[in-house]
């Protein structure tokens, strides 16, 4: 249960990937991913578009299973368990590893029902009103919506919708929150709010965020992985990790020339 997840005896390495290759059919989308993701840290994935950073992120909660041709080689460990072992239930995985998407995607239901959706699925028996309030508070949107919990989630502004989606993810008490470019559809003010929120959340959760915004990665994250993409002779593009370091190291003294160019080019 969720309470076990929070126990202090567990490992600090939440995810470890070993020689992870990701395929769509015959097409190798990402190769040779070997990274550890640490507990209660914010890990950022950056890189040019098409480098497979979102694809890797979606492997961590098996959301790629919804794509028929998808399969992997190599292993992803979640606290030492092979996430893709045949006896693992992807539905259970997604419960413990939450996700916030690029486009805010509230259900066409009330704000209250959006939050209560996940807990209800899991047969939550406690005080739902309290859980809804706590989740909304943690996502820093309680003040905005406390008087209109019966309004439709889809009627909120884009930034509010995204914080609602974060609150919805928190409500099922996951250990990890995966964020797939959560601010790309938002204005700068909403973006800053979400970044502040991430700093709050990392006390309780492990966060992995994909972003194409360099400043966001350097501001908000503890460790950063830089992805790049190579094109083979047939014109197929395969992504790989160039460098994975603590964020200040990666931005200030990168080992690889490609990282240097990418990081400075954007800041230029």
């Amino acid at each position: 249960m969720a309470s076990n997840v929070q126990s202090p005896t567990q490992t600090d390495t939440v995810f470890r990937t070993e020689n992870l290759d990701i395929y769509y059919g015959d097409f190798k989308a990402v190769r040779d991913v070997n990274i550890d993701i640490q507990k209660n840290q914010i890990t950022a994935f950056i890189g040019p578009s098409g480098c497979g950073k979102s694809t890797v992120l979606r492997c961590f909660n098996r959301l790629n299973d919804l794509i028929k041709s998808f399969h992997i080689n190599g292993t992803i460990y979640y606290h030492g368990q092979d996430l893709y072992a045949p006896d693992i239930d992807p539905v259970e995985v997604r419960r413990q590893i939450g996700m916030v998407f690029q486009q805010p995607n509230p259900f066409p239901k009330t704000i209250y029902d959006n939050i209560a959706y996940g807990p209800r699925l899991l047969g939550f028996k406690g005080d739902m009103d309290e859980l809804v309030e706590t989740s909304l508070r943690k996502a820093a949107i309680w003040e905005d919506v406390k008087d209109k919990l019966k309004a439709l989630g889809t009627d909120l502004s884009g930034g509010q919708q995204q914080r609602l989606c974060i609150a919805r993810a928190i409500a099922v008490k996951p250990e990890v929150i995966l964020m797939d470019e959560p601010c790309s559809a938002l204005d700068p003010i909403s973006t800053l709010k979400i970044e502040d929120l991430m700093q709050e959340l990392k006390q309780d959760y492990t966060i992995v965020i994909v972003t194409h915004n360099m400043q966001q990665a350097s501001r908000a994250s503890d460790r950063t992985a830089f992805f790049n993409v190579e094109t083979n002779e047939k014109g197929k593009r395969t992504g790989y990790i160039v460098e994975y370091e603590p964020t200040e190291v990666l931005f200030q003294s990168p080992r690889e020339k490609a990282t240097q160019e990418y990081v400075s080019g954007r800041f230029g």
């Binding site: 076990n4 997840v5 126990s7 606290h79 030492g80 368990q81 006896d87 239930d89 259970e92």
Partner: peptide
């Protein structure tokens, strides 16, 4: 500490339950 040890400690119930 190895990763598999840790899994034992945590005892996450990710297993399928048909």
């Amino acid at each position: 500490m190895t990763i598999s040890d840790a899994a034992g400690h945590v005892g996450l119930s990710l297993k399928k339950n048909p």
